[in-house]
Design a protein around this nucleic acid. Structure first.
Length: 346
DNA sequence: AAAACGGGGCA
DNA sequence: TGCCCAGTTTT
């Protein structure tokens, strides 16, 4: 039996029943694919349900504000996905009459849709012969064929994309693509793959040569850089605080946070107080300051470690218009801020 | 071609 | 606690 037929027969028995597998609506498939980028099903499922519940059609999503979309996305990370999702929904409604593009080439032009997502939507919704290449597919192919070209290189992409396209079941690309991803995710998992009960354990190169845990090969990531964040948590007599929207490109763009002072290294009380003297919010303000967390909180992102201190600034009146603390949960904030808000007794 | 972009899960 | 996971856009 061909690799493809073995995969689809495995899938017919082991397929997980998930809400986005009950539909061919390209809007719903698109939504699920964007949510599932860089995200495990267990984490993404509740977000998918929240989004389809609040925005059942592309028109509903297009009519929302970006702030609302980011709020619903809060906690999922990689927030450019949410910004691009919203921008693309508006584009489809305003320029394409709400009709979803129905080919790989046209899908690829949309913001937030790259090779993987265009291939997934085109095959699942429109039966186009476009093989998906995600982390699960990379893993299965590299092991089964014993290919040690690093997957996170342009050369690796070309090799594995051609191979995935070559073995694609042209009679049923929709089932095939979902089968190979599910197989890679569950049977051919990163650690502890279930080789003993694997349909391919007679033919898999990596299993025969005992290279399962050496594949796929990847170029190692750089070490994360350390950053030192000091958040200014204002508390006024009238129970208001200050939240600012992050405008600049970089992490958390368009999310809200407490006013931030970044330092070169961990700030002592003394250095922080002199920083406040030069800060436009506090230079002319009558306030008291105390450090909330004596031990800094280290929030780890894939590419930077944020050493964070929350400083409580108590003042009679805020230096700029603020927001009532009782409304603070209306704003989309990073998980780091969300955890503080939940923990801090305002 | 390489870097930037979050957060959760698991050993 | 340290390491692993991973599509798209930007540089």
């Amino acid at each position: 039996m061909s690799v493809a037929k073995t995969l689809t027969s495995w899938y017919s028995i082991n397929k997980r029943h998930l809400p986005w597998r009950e539909t061919k609506d390209p809007y719903k498939i698109w939504l699920s694919e964007i949510i599932l980028q860089q995200t495990q099903i267990k984490q993404g499922l509740s977000y998918y349900e929240a989004f389809t519940d609040k925005y059942p059609t592309v028109f509903d999503l297009a009519n929302a504000t970006e702030s609302d979309v980011l709020k619903l996305w809060q906690g999922l990370g990689y927030y450019s996905r949410a910004r691009n999702l919203h921008a693309t929904a508006k584009y489809i409604v305003n320029n394409l009459n709400g009709k979803f593009p129905n080919t790989y080439e046209k899908l690829l032009k949309l913001k937030g849709i790259g090779d993987y997502t265009a291939s997934a939507i085109a095959s699942i919704c429109f039966n186009e012969h476009t093989a998906v290449l995600d982390g699960n597919v990379y893993r299965f192919l590299s092991r089964y064929y014993g290919i040690d070209t690093p997957i996170n290189t342009s050369k690796g992409f070309k090799i594995f994309k051609a191979l995935a396209q070559d073995i694609l079941d042209k009679d049923n690309p929709a089932e095939h693509n979902q089968a190979i991803m599910d197989f890679g995710s569950r049977q051919c998992s990163p650690t502890n793959p279930d080789c003993m009960f694997c349909l391919f354990n007679q033919t898999c190169v990596a299993f025969r040569e005992d290279k399962i845990l050496k594949l796929p090969q990847k170029i190692k990531a750089k070490k994360p850089v350390n950053k030192y964040f000091n958040f200014l948590v204002f508390v006024s007599d009238s129970s208001s605080t200050i939240l600012e929207k992050r405008q600049e490109n970089g992490i958390w763009k368009n999310l809200y946070q407490f006013p931030l002072i970044e330092t070169k290294k961990t700030a002592s009380l003394n250095t922080f107080q002199s920083a406040l003297k030069n800060n436009s919010l506090t230079s002319n303000l009558d306030f008291k300051v105390s450090l909330y967390n004596e031990i800094e909180i280290v929030h780890k992102l894939s590419h930077q470690h944020l050493h964070t201190k929350f400083w409580i600034i108590t003042t009679k009146k805020l230096p700029v218009p603020g927001i009532p603390i009782k409304n603070i949960k209306d704003y989309a904030v990073p998980v780091l801020i969300e955890k503080f808000i939940e923990e801090f007794n305002f």
